[in-house]
Design a protein around this nucleic acid. Structure first.
Length: 96
DNA sequence: AAAGTGACTAGAC
DNA sequence: CGTCTAGCCACTT
């Protein structure tokens, strides 16, 4: 299995600063994942100890089944969600 | 082996 | 704003 990829993804997500967010695409690019889908899969499997709530979809909306929890957590960090959506232009952070 | 699935995305309308 | 299509990749049926 791609243990390396898992580790890289975890590290990137772990490094996301509080009060900022990144898209699955950003994480995928930073971690070298072949497709953003894999990032979601990896987080579902191995993201329980990470700030996964700082990872959003490209349009600033979280995945449907997580939306409630995710938006609540972000709000608690000072990330203002407007109508279930995060203004990426303001909070987005691109990991290296 | 073929088809379905999902924490995704970009483009077309 | 919204819905639909087509790619995408690893995994499960």
């Amino acid at each position: 299995m791609d243990e390396e990829l898992h580790e890289r993804v975890r590290e990137v997500v772990r490094a996301l600063p509080e009060g900022s967010v990144a898209t699955y695409g950003d994480v995928a690019a930073a971690a070298g994942a072949p497709t953003p889908r894999l990032v979601g899969r990896i987080l579902a499997e191995d993201g329980q100890d990470l700030p996964w709530h700082r990872v959003l979809r490209a349009d600033g909306t979280p995945a449907p089944h997580l939306a409630t929890e995710q938006l609540a957590r972000l709000r608690a960090e000072g990330v203002s969600s407007e109508g279930g959506r995060i203004p990426l232009g303001r909070f987005r952070h691109r990991p290296r």
